[in-house]
Design a protein around this nucleic acid. Sequence first.
DNA 1: TCTCTAGGGTAACAGCGTTAGCCACACTAG
DNA 2: CTAGTGTGGCTAACGCTGTTACCCTAGAGA
Lengths: 178, 178
Amino acid sequence: MASSAPSGLTLRAREIVEAARGLLEEEGPDALTMRRVAGRLGIRAPSLYKHLSGKEALEAALISDGFVELAEVFEAAVRGAEDPLGALAVAYRDFALRRPHLYRLMTDRPLRRDLLAPGVEERAARPLVEAAGGDQNLARAAWAFAHGMTILELNGRFPPAADLGAAWREGLSAFRRS
Amino acid sequence: MASSAPSGLTLRAREIVEAARGLLEEEGPDALTMRRVAGRLGIRAPSLYKHLSGKEALEAALISDGFVELAEVFEAAVRGAEDPLGALAVAYRDFALRRPHLYRLMTDRPLRRDLLAPGVEERAARPLVEAAGGDQNLARAAWAFAHGMTILELNGRFPPAADLGAAWREGLSAFRRS
DNA sequence: TCTCTAGGGTAACAGCGTTAGCCACACTAG
DNA sequence: CTAGTGTGGCTAACGCTGTTACCCTAGAGA
C-alpha cells in the first residue's frame, strides 16, 4: 500500500509532479510531455501511469500546487498591510511574472476541479474577497482586472513601450473608489 | 499566378481559412487539425501547404479575420452611443460569447504579428482608446478588465451562481469615475 | 508542340498521450 | 520455507498530430 502525502498523492507521484514542475518552469509547456517527465526520473513514459491517471491529473497536481503557493503569497501580502487590495495586486503580478508557465497553466483553460486537491482554489480566493470587504462583485471585478493585466502582459499584448505600472495604478485606484 | 484577396490570401487559401473557421466554431479547437480542415474541402492535409505555410499561418488568418470582425462590432457599438465605454463592453462580451473558440484563439497566446494581416490589431483597438478619451492607461486597464471578465467566464472560473452582469457593472462604473 | 506551373496525390517521419501485456522484486500468509 | 500477491518497472504498439519529400496530371503560354 503506497503511503500518500498531504496532497493526496503517493510519494512517487509527488516526485513525478516535482519533475514536471521543473520541466515546466525551465522549458515551458511544450517540454511538459509524459516522455520528458519520465526521462527526468530515469524511467519510461508508460511507467508514469502506475502513479498518475494521465497527463490531465499531472497538470491538475501542478495547478493544485500553484494554488497553494498563490494562497501563501496572498496571505503573506495582506498580513498587516494598510492597503490590502494594492498589496494583493503586487503579489499577484509578481507571482505570475516569476512563474509564467505555471500561471498560464493555472488560468488558461477550464479547471478540472474534480482532479484538484480539495479546497485549494477557495483558499487562494479568500484573501481577495476579504480585501474587497466581502463584496463579491467587487472581488470578481478586481480579479478580472488583475488577471487581464497579467495574462495580457505575459502574452505580450501590450505595446513594448506601455507603462504597465501606470495602467495597474489606474485600475486599482478605480476599484478603490468603489 | 494565383490572384490574392484583400486579406493578402489566395482565393484557395481563403477557402481553407473558411473551412477552418467552420470547424473551429462548430467543434472547437481540438477539431482544428490540418487533416480535418483538408477533409472539409475534399483534399488531403499535405495539399494545404500549397496554399498556406503551415498551421500557424492558418491560425493567424483566423485571428486576422477575428480582429476585423471585432473592429466592425466595436465601430458599430460606439456609433452614436451616449455611453461608449459601456457600449464597447457589451459588444466585447457579446462577441466573445458568440464565438468563444475564436476569441480564445485570438487571446490565448502571444500574437504572431508577423503573420497577421497588417493593421487589423490596431483597428480593433482604436475605438476603445477613443472611448477612453485618449488616455492609454485607462484604455489598457479597461481592456484588461474586459478581457479578464470574458476569459474567466469562458473558462468557467466564476461560480455558476455568480451574477456576472453585476460584476461587469461594478467594474465599468469604477472605470467611468476615472 | 514543348515546357512550365499550379495543385492535387501518397508515403513517411518524429513526436504526442495512452494501452496492453510482460517481468522481477519484495513482502506477507500459511 | 514457500506460495501468492502487489508494486513498479519494461517493450511494443496504436492512433493521432504537423510536416516534408516526392510524384503526377491538367492546363496555359510561347
